[in-house]
Design a protein around this nucleic acid. Sequence first.
DNA 1: TCTGGGGTCCTAGGACCC
DNA 2: TCTGGGGTCCTAGGACCC
Length: 436
Amino acid sequence: MRATASVLHIDLDAFFAAVEQRDKPSLRGKPVIVGGVGGRGVVATASYEARSYGVRSAMSTREARARCPHAAFLTGRFHAYRETSAKVMAVLRAASPLVEPLSLDEAFVDLAQAGLPDLEVATVVAFGEDLRRKVAEASGGLTGTVGIGSSKFIAKVASELDKPDGLTVVPPGTEVALLRPMRVSVIPGVGPATAERLRRAGIHTIADLDAVGENELVRLLGRAQGHGLHLLARAQDDRPVVADREAKSVSSEGTYDTDLTDRRLMEGLLARQAAQVGQRLRKHGLSGRTVTIKVRLHDFTTLSRSTTLAGPTDSGPTISRMARMLLADLDTSGGVRLLGVGVSGLADWIQDDLFGEDTATEDDDDVPPPQVEATRRPYVPGMDVVHAQMGPGWVWGSGKGVVTVRFETAETSPGPVRSYSIEDPSLSPVELPSDD
DNA sequence: TCTGGGGTCCTAGGACCC
DNA sequence: TCTGGGGTCCTAGGACCC
């Protein structure tokens, strides 16, 4: 917790629905519901007009139709949302260099980096109001709600207090008094399951949370969450605003209107998802070693199976092959409502450190320590490295001299062989010897 | 015909290594 | 001749967020 109210949280109001109303004037002032329109769809965002009928995010579209039959039901236009989000984030980044997006419609802004003359309450409020004006201007009239406080937690809680189109600042020193009467569920990270556990222990408010000891919370909820909640109950939160957080996984999944029973069809759907995951990995210059499939059965039981490759891949056919293998181990005879595939353990060959750590330790006396660390992984778009060799032994990104790499995909086996100079920071090919 | 899709983080057990 | 801990990696599942 800082001594000043210098963390700002902004949340765009009913974002997806607001973009639709912006782009289609006939929808303005009317209930608009964006989400899945199929038999198993859920609501992503409801406009405030729709919320007055009791429609909420994550509600099934079926129920939303029952509550508000005359609403406009729309599937998302994510291109438009991403485009608008980018404009808003640009406004935030122009206001402060330190911006942490949480999603398309939410971000933290560090005001300590914004070059303000001071961080008095009046100053940050004026800044927040100005920011809201600029966001509306850049987004074609979208409103956002702002919260400002001495930590991420307080800023986020504050932004919930005056929705929509509002601003709340929590003056430093008043945090604990604000929090104490609030229900535990206002804390981000306390969802239905945690709230229920706490309720059973007689803990309803943040004051209750503060009254039980840290040991008791750890016993109830586990080490990380128990410790975290103990701190938050006292408004103790030192988490920094972090720009440019890197992706940890990429995935694609789908829920089908009728349960799947045909394995060939499932494999085909997985192949399509794998291709999409590969495409998105390549687009962002990423590849990953762990392939995971997700299978939701007819009774909503959710299974996952994963496997880790020797080297990273961004190839759709490879991901698909692994996914098919993982699916083969599962009994899907009762029917499958959801299938998905993802890649994690992401490596990144565009922004690797110039020189990695020397990994040799005193116990590693049988292997000579690497002298040079490669700066990027050898890369051919859509292909896997299946073998990399340098000098006397196998090498992966470290060593000295020239490394020979064989690539392949599912269809192209063996693929091209290329040699790279490992001192060359770009890892560009230096020659193309014949395959062996 | 209750219950999306894209993510993040945590836990727990087993393998394996020193 | 019975028995260590610590660390890391991997897998599966679950809670949670927007």
